[in-house]
Amino acid sequence: MALQLEVSLATEKKEKPDFNKLGFGQIFTDHMFVMDYSEGKGWHDPRIVPYAPLTLDPAAMVFHYGQSVFEGLKAYRTRENNILLFRPDKNMHRMNVSNERIDMPQIDEAFVLEALRELIKIDQDWIPSAPGTSLYIRPFMIATEPYLGVRPSHSYKLVIILSPVGAYYAGGMKPVKIHVESKYVRAVRGGTGNAKTAGNYAASLKAQSEAKVLGYEQVLWLDGVEGKYIEEVGAMNVFFKVKGEIWTPALNGSILDGVTRNSVLQLLRDWGLPVHEKRISMEELQQAHANGELEEAFGTGTAAVISPIGELNWNQHQMFINGQEVGELTMKLYDTLTGIQYGEVEDKFGWTVKVL
């Protein structure tokens, strides 16, 4: 039976915030999308309803065994007042990759994407127009069956919520300081590192807190077996420019396949630059830095798009990169990607999807 989307509009609308003073992930729109799954019935009752708390049994399995996945993407308002999504099909597909790993049911990617488009149309007045601002989109799925036993749940809930967010670089782009983690392990091959599941982020929080005490904004994770090969930053994939070539860790089963990472790789190759997806050891990177060959470093992700890295701290050894200034390639990538996202630069790859 084909799913039919039902819509129940809010009778009272929330007061809009000052769109010039938006933070990140603190304000939510008037509506949300919800759909339920039951074993034997499949996905059912897809609906757009007023934003409201969820009611769950205290024994819901998500609370006890952590079956939870999520995604993150954005909607952008152009100067012509159009609304664009950036490669949303990649996010929907990656959600199913995560679902497979956490043993959760697959979603109909096309249907959920169409439901998202309808949700955005309903709450379009929440999309800010100031430079750099956007509407953050958070789809997530949780196990809802009330049962205290270690097995996959027999019921689930898929929800999409929306949040207007401010410009990531409201005060101008500034390189971040990153601590290379040598004590804790985030993921190993065969684990859940390539799934966007809540537990991965919970496992990273302690290291993040300790790095902040040391004065560092984020953590760079190394492989969980030998503790020597670079994997990813807490919320970003990572790239290095060494002697004119671009290095990034190869996807190995414990690294998230980032949508922005994939887009950057396509851009770099389209520009004719030499790109290497490979294993990168910290010793190799430190040697490149000592030789004056490490020219730029940056992270890639939905929130910041491109985040320049100005310092790496590994085993109490500080590596300052490009004079702690934003590199030329880093800036070009940021300008190109954000230009495509906001409809300012030609989208030769067909990445953007028009909602309105």
Rank of each mutant, 00 (worst) to 15 (best):
A2W: 05
A2Y: 08
A2V: 11
E6C: 03
V7R: 11
S8L: 08
K13I: 05
K14C: 11
K16T: 07
N20A: 13
K21W: 01
L22K: 00
L22Y: 00
G23Q: 14
G25H: 01
Q26S: 14
I27M: 08
F28Y: 15
M35K: 04
G40Y: 03
W43R: 07
R47Y: 00
I48D: 12
P53G: 11
L54S: 12
T55L: 14
P58K: 12
P58Q: 07
M61E: 15
Y65P: 08
Y65D: 11
S68K: 05
V69L: 15
G72D: 01
A75T: 10
E80A: 14
N81L: 03
L84W: 07
L84M: 09
N96V: 04
S98G: 10
S98D: 08
N99E: 03
N99S: 13
R101F: 04
I102C: 05
I102H: 01
L113Y: 04
L116F: 07
L116R: 09
E118Y: 01
I120D: 02
K121G: 05
K121N: 08
Q124S: 13
W126G: 06
I127K: 01
P128S: 14
S129Q: 09
T133D: 04
T133K: 13
L135A: 06
I137G: 10
P139T: 07
F140D: 06
E145L: 06
P146V: 02
P146A: 03
Y147Q: 11
G149E: 15
V150E: 06
S153T: 13
K157I: 02
L158N: 07
L162I: 05
L162A: 08
V165W: 00
Y169N: 13
V176K: 15
K177N: 09
K183W: 04
K183S: 13
R186Q: 14
V188G: 03
G191V: 03
K196Y: 09
K196G: 09
A202C: 10
A202E: 03
A203R: 12
L205I: 12
K206G: 00
A207E: 01
S209E: 14
E210Y: 02
E210G: 01
D223S: 03
E226V: 08
Y229P: 00
E231W: 06
M236A: 10
F239T: 13
W247I: 04
P249F: 08
G253M: 10
S254M: 08
G258H: 03
N262Y: 06
N262G: 14
L265Q: 13
R269S: 12
H276V: 12
I280R: 06
E283H: 13
E283M: 13
H289C: 05
A290R: 15
N291Y: 05
E293G: 00
L294R: 11
A297T: 05
E311F: 02
E311I: 03
M319D: 12
M319S: 11
F320K: 15
E325F: 00
E328R: 14
L333S: 07
Y334S: 01
Y334E: 02
D335F: 03
T336W: 00
T336N: 04
I340F: 00
G343M: 12
V345E: 12
G350V: 10
